[in-house]
């Protein structure tokens, strides 16, 4: 990589902001505020505590629903991937749940279980779970039978087999489910909050949509993008690097 290439991400971001600034100046409309205006709103929301409160509410929903979806989805995916009969029986269920629009599940959860936190989490969970199941099922199908036989022959416990033989093979699939999961879940959470909660980034976006306040909408969106990027760079990438250190 040349020295110039190292600066490509920063240069590309600067170019994006420059284009945005030029467009905002050319249009001179509240519908496209300049990056500096958005930054100003971002700062005001931050020091007023509003941004952290609503971002925090959304993040808690994200963490809870993401954790449950990953744990439950991995277990179901592993079971389906390793058991052909179970897979044949539940395959249609998966296809159905994969194809139900997120909005339908959210509305149904709110109608059936009320406008409460549990319904919100359940709606996100039902939307995300099939994706995790399908990804992990593919990983479980691709497990190396030779290594599993080795583990069986040497009488490794179930826990050791899961930890040392199965888990490392599933890792790329779990990382893929994690990344696509974060991207999908936070979008669903925003709709859940927009439709039936009184806090969170989705709730704020709805409020500013009614006020036609594009600067605030962009400030909240950028805040969330920063959080997701933070998770990617501080948790996911180091995790990836650590788990792949054995590769040449």
């Amino acid at each position: 990589m040349s020295r110039l290439q190292k600066f490509f991400p920063a240069l590309s971001l600067a170019a994006f902001l420059a284009v945005w600034q030029v467009l905002a100046l050319a249009l001179d409309s509240t519908l496209l505020p300049s990056p500096l205006t958005v930054l100003g709103v971002f700062w005001l929301e931050l020091i007023s505590g509003q941004l952290t409160y609503h971002l925090g509410a959304t993040l808690i929903r994200l963490i809870v629903s993401f954790t449950i979806a990953m744990l439950l989805g991995s277990a179901i995916g592993l079971a389906l991937g390793r058991n052909k009969k179970l897979d044949a029986f539940f395959d249609n269920w998966l296809v159905i749940f994969l194809n139900i629009p997120a909005l339908v599940m959210i509305i149904l959860c709110y109608v059936w279980f009320g406008l409460n936190e549990a319904s919100a989490i359940l709606a996100v969970l039902i939307n995300k779970l099939p994706n995790v199941v399908v990804t992990v099922r593919e990983g479980a199908r691709a497990l190396d039978q030779d290594l599993l036989d080795m583990a069986r022959c040497y009488r490794l416990s179930r826990l050791d087999t899961l930890r040392h033989v199965i888990w490392p093979q599933l890792h790329p699939f779990l990382m893929s489910a994690t990344r696509s999961g974060l991207a999908l879940i936070w979008k669903i959470i925003l709709i859940v909050e927009l439709l039936g909660r009184n806090n969170g980034v989705g709730f704020q976006l709805h409020l500013y949509f009614q006020l036609f306040d594009v600067a605030s909408i962009l400030a909240y969106s950028i805040a969330f993008v920063i959080v997701i990027q933070g998770i990617e760079h501080t948790i996911l990438k180091p995790l990836d690097k650590k788990s792949q250190r054995w590769r040449r």
Binding site: L147, D149, M150, H164, V165, P168, W246, R247
Partner: peptide, 9 residues
């Protein structure tokens, strides 16, 4: 085994 079957990680 015929092939070593070592865990690469």
């Amino acid at each position: 085994f015929q092939n070593p079957r070592l865990l690469p990680w």
